[in-house]
């Protein structure tokens, strides 16, 4: 690297060595900085992970399995899977539609629309839950109407699903919009010119081009959907076995001092988080050419 630079700068070769030494910190400084970094990450990242698993297995493997097989725990796991199972596909379809409209076309108000799509990330989870209580709760805007028709959204499963959809709303869209934007329209135009229909073009040309970005958005969306706490806590009503998701079940167990059981359920979510990070790393590695080619200047795309 230094060679190329000094050549381009037209410097005499003798200065090369000086320049190289001058852009690297001394060995001692380097190891001190590495040491501080490792200490900081170990303290804030590794230690919390370690405590989750050490507490989960504190009373042994038998107790661990027993706390996962409790009916309430199983009901919480089922509800979490259900909420994510509805929220993720809906946001996936929305994300693809939004990316098609916003990534492939230019129109007035586009950047405003992108800001609005990102809005749920800026809203506190508690406020996200509250807005649905104000709409559908007993004292809410539609509350009396819902009560008359014997429909329940708040303190019931539909509210949990709605809150989950809201907090995971932007994940897929924000991943795909820059990808479609960068890929342009040439390939689709070629397909259309060769006689493919619109849907054929979409499924055979556009979709395969964004498959890694799509998967990336989906796993991040899923991790958040299964782990959401604040928003779901506001709308759930905490009815054991009925409206408790895994994070809410953890809270109840923890507040009842059933620490080992709380951490056993927590360890499942921690495993989900680790699996998400592994898949994410693999995708970044596999899709590097695709990302690099199409996502110039898209440095923020990892930030959720």
């Amino acid at each position: 690297m230094a060679t190329a630079i000094s050549l381009r700068a037209g410097k005499v070769p003798a200065t090369r060595q000086v320049a190289t030494a001058a852009t690297v910190e001394s060995r001692a400084v380097r190891w001190i900085l590495i040491g501080i970094t490792v200490f900081f990450l170990a303290l804030f990242i590794c230690l919390p992970l370690a405590i989750v698993f050490s507490q989960a297995f504190e009373k042994g493997l038998g107790a661990y399995w027993a706390s996962l097989r409790q009916p309430d725990a199983l009901a919480a796991i089922r509800l979490t899977l259900l909420a994510a199972g509805i929220a993720v596909p809906l946001n996936l379809v929305f994300g693809v539609a939004a990316a098609w409209a916003l990534g492939k076309f230019e129109f007035v108000g586009k950047s405003l629309l992108i800001t609005l799509i990102d809005l749920p990330f800026s809203v506190s989870p508690v406020v996200s839950g509250l807005i649905y209580v104000l709409l559908f709760g007993l004292q809410g805007l539609f509350g009396p109407w819902l009560a008359r028709h014997d429909l329940q959204i708040i303190f019931a499963v539909p509210g949990i699903v709605l809150a989950t959809i809201f907090v995971t709303f932007p994940f897929v869209a924000r991943e795909l919009i820059p990808l479609f934007e960068a890929q342009g329209q040439e390939e689709e135009e070629a397909a259309l010119a060769l006689g493919a229909s619109g849907w054929q073009t979409f499924f055979r040309v556009s979709l395969p081009n964004i498959k890694w970005g799509l998967l990336y958005g989906v796993i991040l969306c899923n991790a958040r959907a299964m782990g959401e706490f604040g928003a779901v806590s506001v709308v759930s009503g905490h009815i054991r076995g009925r409206t408790n998701t895994m994070p809410l079940h953890i809270e109840i167990l923890y507040n009842e001092y059933q620490f080992a059981a709380a951490f056993a359920v927590a360890s499942l979510l921690a495993l989900l988080a680790l699996a998400t990070l592994v898949v994410k790393t693999v995708i970044e590695w596999r899709a590097r050419p695709q990302f690099a080619e199409s996502a110039e200047g898209e440095g923020e795309e990892q930030i959720a």
């Binding site: 990242i45 405590i51 953890i250 923890y254 927590a266 790393t281």
Partner: peptide
């Protein structure tokens, strides 16, 4: 490994982080 783990606070559910930090 450390590079990948930096994203853990995005991936780990907040309730899990909450009880882990409290226990520590």
């Amino acid at each position: 490994l450390f590079d990948s783990l930096v994203d853990l606070p995005f991936a780990l559910p907040t309730a899990v982080a909450g009880i882990a930090l409290t226990t520590i």
